[in-house]
Design a protein around this nucleic acid. Structure first.
Length: 885
DNA sequence: TCGTTCACG
DNA sequence: ACGTACGTGAACGAT
């Protein structure tokens, strides 16, 4: 077998590793305060590569400095780059140390870049019969791909790579690897800061290279090009194009003073690596080495536990004033999941059992219900609901690992305790999948393994408490945790336990009518199509519409023809079948998701639906609702709205009551931007879309605002909140892109501080890597500095949207906590049932409706003090459908 | 398991 | 030249 050569582009991988882990930058520091994320990421990459590739020779090349022969030739080369952050530069010496301890050679050469070293050695490798793998974060190196050299470019993160062979390059770009140089010469490279030829981008560059072979080929045959602007640019900028080609070309003959023979790879120097890991506090890598040397099973620090039985319950009372508690419910739905066992305890003693009946004993029950004993848990809400099913109260919750972890970083949040602990650099607990298995094989294991796992979980919660609290404090998030999210978990638990009464018969009656209608429409569709097919299949439907009936294709998806509503609406005038398909879709959605779906989840014991609110999922701080989702019950279309007739109060003589915030997101926008005009409009109680229309269309006071103007202004308002683009706005309100552009400009002129806010927020995100809401809820945006345009743009839109959507979420959460307090304080029978982002739904005895009509809006509009008033509207009725003012 | 579609704020 | 408004969940067919 051919010898194998590994060449790693040190600088680009270090950069990649650093930015890939940028959102956790503070988590990766050693005890001396050294940042270690890039070092850690580099090692991840290295291990990953060496798993699949076993080199005989290996080298990591680094840049020797900023000055190279390229900067001497072209002063602006790589100009305009941001200064490398200090947190990164300090890591380079350690990366080199790591590389050498790992048994790889390092090399750098004055005046040359790492690329050139790699290019030169790869060529030598090719000639000496090596199979070479180049690993880099820089796509430019793909020009080095050959029959015996593969270039692995990191894709996202550091271990996910895309392998470029000449075939792969051909497939992706249609050219050879060396032609990539010509392509880049023509199109330029904004990150290396050389221009290429004006107006030539990737598409045009590839076309030219395919046609003429190379930059030189183009100029030899320039006469063949028809007269055009492009030709003029090419002719005028010939010198630039040729110079860019030199800049883009990686050297294959740099004057290096090492030889392949010097680069033997003989594996890592384990002793040194262990020292290094200790210096860096890389616990997980240390664990891995232990596994290798000690066979197995030392993975997790040993733990002692005691099985709790009816005969040693006094141990619970002896635990003291703090302890972890964890009730294992193996199904995600804790309203119905069996109880597999529990653990209770602290560093002194871990008590475990499979018998949930023991929880009902006096000793345990009192321990759980004693608010003076602080409890550390994972997912407080689930624990409260689970225990409630056993008739047990859980009081004194102090630390919720899941909740705290979510607040620290919404991105890498997991519902699995083991995974989450690992995210926080705690390795002494496995994931449920590792212990219980997955799919059909998932099962609770024998006592020994199961009890140990439970004890490990409880210990992990305890061990992580102080560090997570400390991080919350550093982020100024303690009040968010203590005063909002943790109390909210209790409120949500109550709402979930209460549930919503749903009349199954109403749904069944609606269902049978819909079944009939569906059958009729389906018949008509088959007639019009001339054959029977599965209308639910977008693939089959596409074939019927666009191939058989030859309707024009308006939009395509990755997999074929798009048949989405906006497309079908455009086609509707051309063929009657389309209208029927739209009808069919609408009704079958109601039938499958809402009639059948809801009937499936009504609990037979109480005729209620008990949703679960996910408190630790969304990136903005909103809740979400599952099993079932009660936050998307139809309301917009009259047919769908009927579903709400089935949502009824739990008792005779009760009614449904609902209050919602009016325009809460735009009010938040007015508040956080400080925009004078926007604030005035709200303070004056204006119809905000109408007043926006008046401003952006420059209407005189006496001119009236027609419906269409208001509609457009409303779309602009939405657009602003979502991160507007002229294209997006144009699509939505059916105007030209340039008109949409004008609307936006006009908006920014009228509301100048909104424009400033967008700019400042994006700047803040670039600098800090995150954005935050009025309560310091954070969202990290790792893509905010991405090179890829669309990823970066997306991050920019979320940067400006998240503080708005998230602050609105904060506001209603505060209102919910206060509302629950008020209900209890006033001894009201009314129950809070649902939260739908800006709306709270209650059930209450008729006598209490007048109380709620004052109380709920009072609580909601005073939840926080903003620079503009909050407005709340209320309605009530006999069912959720019948709500009226 | 993924992609598409469509329900909501 | 890019590729298009933010945040969700469920059902279904295709793979």
């Amino acid at each position: 077998m051919a010898k194998q050569l590994l060449l790693i582009d040190g600088n680009s991988i270090v950069f990649r590793a650093f930015f890939a882990m940028h959102n956790q930058i503070d988590k990766f520091t050693n005890k001396d305060g050294l940042h270690t994320a890039a070092i850690y990421g580099f090692k991840l990459m290295l291990d990953h590569v060496l798993e699949n590739f076993h080199p005989d020779a290996a080298l990591v090349a680094f840049d020797a400095g900023k000055v190279t022969f390229r900067t001497k030739m072209y002063a602006d080369y790589k100009g305009g780059r941001n200064k490398t952050p200090e947190e990164l530069t300090e890591q380079f010496p350690y990366v080199r140390e790591l590389v050498r301890d790992s048994g790889l050679h390092t090399y750098e050469l004055k005046d040359y870049e790492a690329d050139d070293i790699i290019g030169t050695l790869a060529k030598e490798g090719d000639e000496a019969g090596y199979e070479t793998l180049i690993v880099t974060g820089d796509r430019d190196l793909t020009q080095l791909a050959s029959n015996h050299t593969t270039v692995a470019v990191t894709h996202k993160g550091v271990t996910d790579t895309e392998h470029y062979t000449p075939e792969h390059v051909k497939e992706k770009l249609g050219i050879t690897p060396t032609q990539i140089i010509d392509m880049k010469a023509l199109m330029g490279d904004s990150s290396d800061n050389y221009p290429g030829v004006t107006k030539i981008g990737e598409k045009t560059a590839i076309k030219l290279v395919k046609q003429f072979g190379s930059v030189e080929g183009i100029y030899e045959n320039i006469d063949q090009l028809k007269k055009s602007k492009m030709k003029e640019h090419l002719v005028e900028e010939e010198a630039i194009a040729r110079q860019c080609k030199t800049l883009a070309t990686i050297l294959r003959d740099a004057p290096i003073d090492i030889k392949l023979a010097d680069l033997n790879y003989n594996g890592p120097q384990t002793e040194k690596l262990i020292d290094f890991y200790q210096k860096m506090d890389f616990r997980s890598f240390l664990k891995k080495l232990d596994v290798l040397s000690d066979e197995q099973e030392v993975e997790i620090a040993p733990i002692k536990y005691t099985e709790l039985t009816a005969n040693n319950l006094e141990l619970v009372s002896q635990l003291g004033d703090r302890g972890s508690f964890y009730l294992e419910m193996p199904d995600a739905n804790y309203h119905t999941s069996p109880f597999a066992g529990f653990v209770i305890g602290n560093g002194k003693q871990w008590l475990v059992s499979r018998d949930s009946e023991l929880l009902k004993t006096k000793q345990v029950r009192e321990w759980l219900a004693d608010s003076a004993i602080k409890k550390d848990v994972f997912n407080a809400k689930a624990q409260i609901v689970g225990l409630n099913r056993l008739g047990i109260e859980l009081k004194g919750i102090d630390f919720d690992l899941l909740l705290a972890s979510y607040l620290l970083n919404t991105n890498d949040n997991s519902n699995d305790l083991g995974k989450l602990a690992q995210e926080h650099e705690y390795a002494d607990v496995q994931t449920d999948e590792e212990v219980y298995g997955k799919g059909v094989k998932r099962a609770i294991p024998n006592d020994e393994i199961f009890f140990k796992h439970l004890a490990n979980k409880a210990r992990a919660i305890e061990k992580l408490r102080s560090s997570l609290f400390k991080q919350l404090d550093e982020n100024e998030q303690l009040p968010l945790y203590t005063d909002i999210e943790l109390p909210l978990a209790h409120v949500l638990a109550k709402m979930e336990i209460t549930g919503v009464h749903v009349n199954a018969q109403t749904l069944k009656d609606m269902g049978s009518k819909l079944t009939e209608r569906l059958a009729e429409i389906k018949e008509q569709i088959y007639q019009e199509a001339g054959e029977e097919f599965n209308v639910n299949s977008t693939k089959q439907l596409g074939q019927i519409l666009f191939e058989k009936l030859k309707l024009p294709v308006i939009k395509k998806t990755k997999t074929g023809y798009s048949t989405a509503v906006d497309v079908l609406e455009k086609l509707a005038p051309q063929a009657p079948i389309v209208e029927n398909i739209l009808q069919y879709r609408q009704i079958s959605k109601l039938q499958s998701t809402y009639i059948k779906g809801l009937l499936k989840v009504i609990h037979s014991s109480d005729q209620k639906i008990h949703t679960r609110y996910l408190q630790t999922l969304t990136q903005t701080g909103r809740l979400s609702s599952v099993d079932p989702n009660l936050q998307n019950i139809p309301v917009r279309l009259p047919e769908g709205r009927q579903i709400r007739r089935a949502f009824v109060p739990s008792y005779d003589g009760w009614q449904i009551f609902s209050s919602d915030y009016s325009q809460v997101e735009l009010r938040v926008l007015a508040h956080i931007t400080g925009d004078h005009n926007l604030q005035e409009d709200f303070k004056n109680g204006e119809d905000i879309h109408a007043s926006t229309a008046r401003r952006i269309f420059h209407l005189k006071p006496e001119e009236r605002i027609d419906r269409d103007m208001r509609r457009r202004a409303k779309a602009v308002n939405f657009g602003i909140v979502y991160g507007i683009s002229d294209y997006g706005l144009a699509q939505r309100i059916h105007v030209s892109r340039s008109q949409a552009h004008e609307f936006i400009q006009s908006y920014f002129k009228e509301f100048p501080k909104v424009k400033d806010y967008i700019h400042d927020t994006i700047e803040f995100a670039r600098k800090n890597g995150y954005v935050e809401t009025i309560t310091h809820r954070r969202r990290y945006l790792p893509d905010i500095n991405a090179k890829n345009f669309s990823r970066r743009s997306f991050a920019e839109r979320t940067a400006m949207n998240t503080p708005i959507q998230g602050s609105a979420a904060d506001i209603i959460k505060i209102a919910m906590i206060r509302m629950q307090d008020e209900l209890e304080k006033h001894h009201l029978k009314a129950k809070m049932l649902l939260q739908i982002h800006d709306e709270l739904v209650f059930e209450a005895p008729k006598e209490e409706i007048s109380v709620l009509s004052r109380l709920v809006p009072d609580v909601m509009d005073s939840a926080v003090k903003l620079a503009v008033p909050l407005k709340v509207d209320s309605k009530y009725g006999d069912t959720w459908y019948d709500l009226k003012k």
